[in-house]
Amino acid sequence: MAFASVPARAGSQRDPAILRRRMAGFGLLSPALLLMVLMLALPVMALILMSFWTQDGFELDRTFTLENYRQLVATTDEPTIWFGIPFPFAYPVPAILMLKSLAMSLVATVAVIAVAYPMAYFMAFRITRHKALWIILITIPFWTSYLLRVFSWKIVLGFNGAINSGLKSLGLIEEPLEFLLYNPTAVVITLAHAWVAFAILPIYVSLEKIDRTLLEAASDLGDSRLKRFFRITLPLSAPGTIAASLLVFIPTVGDYVTPALVGGPGGTMIGSLVQDLFLKQNNAPLGAAVSIVMMLIIATLVSLFLWAIGYRKLRSRRA
């Protein structure tokens, strides 16, 4: 997308100086490019290849087949009902978990944006001194391991955890609340907390860039503060907000550590299934097929989302 905004310079390709500069550009890119090829492109290729094989007991059958994908879409006459939604699949688990993961990530993303936006707004408009310090303060949770943070949520939400013992000592409850841990809500809370700092920074940057004179002009022309926010601040910060929500939504759909630790069976997500297929059911080819379908679904959804909100228009307006 970054290339799209660079105006094309037709006819200049052959110019040796430009060519040299371009090569230097690729030279600068190459460490990252090499790393991407080695650590991302090749494994994804391997995954795609593997999804066309099958597992036969302990042996990997390397003949090319679409069997894994067929398994994922094969239908049956007896649909599995899950929360009132019928899934007409013979193997309904992937479809159900996919839908559930998307819903859980969506809720987590909305929660993250709801928390991150006011915080970013505060940093951009209310903080005038020591901005760097505030940004560092926001990153402090990242100085500890992600696992440690998930475990702390386990302690906070647990049966004898912080919330339960707090409420108990205040005399508000007799018995500890059991709905806090081991369910989708616990996963959503944990995910939202874990990703909030990732969302603050892009939103902050787009808010920070807003030309303050536009706000003054709006006020001068009689806009109330609220109206000014909805007409100027919100639209101009949309690119950062959208980037932040994608940054949160895409990785959380496939998360499996969080559900494994705080989710219980009810909090299982699609990533848990992939992990289970690879590391428990010893069916790597089916696991590969599930993860590829998951990737495609997420990519499609994100593209649809960007198309629906007219992301291109949004970008060109800012430029």
Partner: peptide, 15 residues
């Protein structure tokens, strides 16, 4: 192998 698969599916289908 049957048990592995069926048990995983059972857990995943919990509402």
């Amino acid at each position: 192998e049957g048990f592995n698969k069926v048990w995983s599916d059972t857990k995943a289908l919990k509402g």
